[in-house]
Design a protein around this nucleic acid. Structure first.
Lengths: 363, 363
DNA sequence: AACCGATGTGAGTCCGGTCTCAAACCTACT
DNA sequence: AGTAGGTTTGAGACCGGACTCACATCGGTT
């Protein structure tokens, strides 16, 4: 009374061929429609395939075509809406071109990234899109590039890896937005970032994230142009979790010479910064001005709405996918890397610092 | 002067074997360490592999082991932080067990979902996690289930598919939160959802999302217990985009008998609802109360902070992954599906409706 | 009637691994 | 010395398709 075939094997070309009464080769031709097949044979094969519910094994197919129609995507934290949106751009574009996506989350850990890249290569993805955890430790990415497998980077550069990078040049927006803050009268401008550097900030420090480097460079330039310099004590790295961000915020706003503006390196940072400011019962922008990177819809809902630096994240993802796919298809003429622009969106969270109020109010 | 091997082929077991001066079989054994291999041979093979930078082809391996160590995940919209978090739970758990994840985004389109499932099966994923776009059109999911390939559903039920479902039972929170609103004196409670139904709401309507059905059921029960009934004109479906949500909001709050509380079916809805309320210059919670599903960090930043219904999204993802993997590993004793609980978190956005103020204020 | 190219067809190889099988090689013990 | 029992080893089948090659088969020419 026992079932002998609890999991009945999927039908293969051979099964279809037998059922249609033709050779495996003919069946394969009819199914893959290539080569020459008579109408009679084609019909019988297709009918047999139908009846057996035949589905080609993509793996077997990949084995001898070499193409898996799969992209590997490696990001730092898919929970972050930034990557969610990026992923959407990649995924939409990939699907349209008939590619699937294997996603790996690294938690911004280079070791995991290294493994991830290797595994994806072992799974024979046709190309890779990586948001590098580090712009400095890039040996593994260089090897991928040199192996000739299409690789496109997003968000950050990777030193020594000549692959295309789809990212906004943050220097100029950082410059422009800092100038804006300076013009409002702020000189005590703080910058808070999650980036892990092992040591506190000092001018000229090298960081794992080229994005953050650019932002700092832009800020330094703006300060320089104003004949000032970015206060090193206000640049705070290693703001890993909500607690440390709140501690840093408290620290920045205490003392006799507090920060009058805080630039948050991402949405998560801004969240905790604003929470702490509310806890300290300080007024935005009356007592502290806030600027954050990335434009999320909720930034319009806070009181006051947050001023942000918006970047075309979806487009960056889409362009990355488009480029790897072009490379995979062997197109020599790969679409030129578009220049992505970040824009400063002023809402209500930037004001004149208290210190500058009496005389600056007239202008 | 021409390079003859522009892309030098990856090394295979055969290459390693030749270099080590042993048979392919021996090399394979040493590499995969199984079977009996003398120390001498093992050393030589490993050394050769090292020198040739040998990496096993996972596809070939999958072909005859049948295991791909890959999970297929199908979600509606990865851009939605809800799914980002879910994905994180799945991804973390999968990685720990040595599984990779192929992610497909359907845009909540059943047709795309159908294809996606098929493609994933063709790619021979070991198991599937699906957040069904529809709880009603489930033929394709039933087929997967019947084929015996491990399948776990998240967030929503799928009619006629006896697979495990990892989801919160929304009925009870919906009941509890509605009762809370009723106790505050609200009777004009609106519910706004993106769910696409083709027709306006009427009691007993069948919807694609079992989650939404549950929420409505809970609301109806609470109304019923209070001897009232859920006003059908205040249940608004098909709130597809920001514009339509804002229009609906305006509509709900206009007229002689406006809604005094609005329940937003997700974060995106809440966003537009609140924006429109601000535009109408109405006070929350003085004139309108707001409750939203899903607890995102930013809900603490609005003025007032939003009351929400939180669900353990990360845990749901993790549990889903754990269960498919258990199934894949053939464990008969699959971990029991945990009962996930959603909780009502009261912050500042729910108050007493204006109509109930004069006398209700005393209690 | 002989010959041509175009079209159909099946046998069999290959992709890169895993795994079975039988033979070869070692002990160790009668 | 002879052999039972274990360990090593290599040849080759196999997974499920794609594809090459040699061999029909056919209508159309001259």
């Amino acid at each position: 009374m026992e079932r002998l075939q609890p999991v009945r094997r999927d039908a293969t070309v051979a099964d279809v061929a037998k059922r249609a009464g033709v050779s495996k080769a003919q069946a394969a031709r009819a199914l893959g429609n290539y080569g020459a097949v008579s109408d009679d044979v084609r019909e019988r094969v297709l009918a047999a395939a139908q009846e057996l519910d035949y589905r080609p094994n993509e793996l077997a197919r990949t084995m001898n075509t070499g193409k898996s129609h799969t992209l590997g995507v490696v990001v730092g934290d898919i929970e972050n809406p930034h990557f969610g949106l990026l992923m959407r751009g990649i995924s939409d574009t990939a699907k349209r071109a008939g590619f699937d996506v294997i996603l790996v989350n690294t938690g911004e850990d280079v070791t995991i990234e290294r493994d991830a890249v290797q595994v994806l290569l072992d799974k024979r993805v046709d190309g890779l899109i990586v948001a590098p955890a580090s712009s400095l430790e890039t040996e593994h990415l260089r090897r991928v590039y040199e192996s000739g497998r299409p690789l496109v980077l997003v968000d950050r550069q990777a030193q020594g890896v000549p692959a295309e990078v789809m990212a906004v040049d943050m220097t100029s927006v950082a410059f422009a937005s800092t100038r804006h803050l300076l013009e409002q009268g702020h000189t005590r401008i703080a910058f808070v970032s999650t980036i892990d550097s092992g040591e506190p900030y000092r001018p000229g420090i090298r960081l794992h994230s080229s994005q953050i480097m650019e932002r700092l460079t832009g800020m330094e330039q703006a300060f320089g142009q104003a004949g000032l310099s970015l206060p090193p004590d206000l640049v705070r790295l290693n703001a890993g979790n909500a607690d440390s961000i709140r501690r840093i915020t408290r620290d920045l706003l205490a003392g006799s010479n507090p920060a009058t503006a805080i630039v948050a390196s991402d949405g998560l940072i801004a969240l905790s910064v604003v929470e702490e400011i509310q806890a300290l019962d300080l007024d935005i922008p009356g007592e502290v001005s806030i600027l954050m990177y990335d434009d999320f819809p909720w930034t319009r809902l806070t009181t006051p709405p947050l001023s942000v630096i918006a970047q075309p994240v979806y487009d960056i993802g889409a362009a990355a996918a488009k480029t790897v796919i072009a490379r995979i298809s062997g197109r020599v003429q790969v679409p030129a890397t578009p220049a992505f622009e970040a824009t400063l969106i002023l809402r209500g969270s930037i004001g004149v610092p208290p210190s500058a109020l009496p005389e600056a109010a007239a202008s």
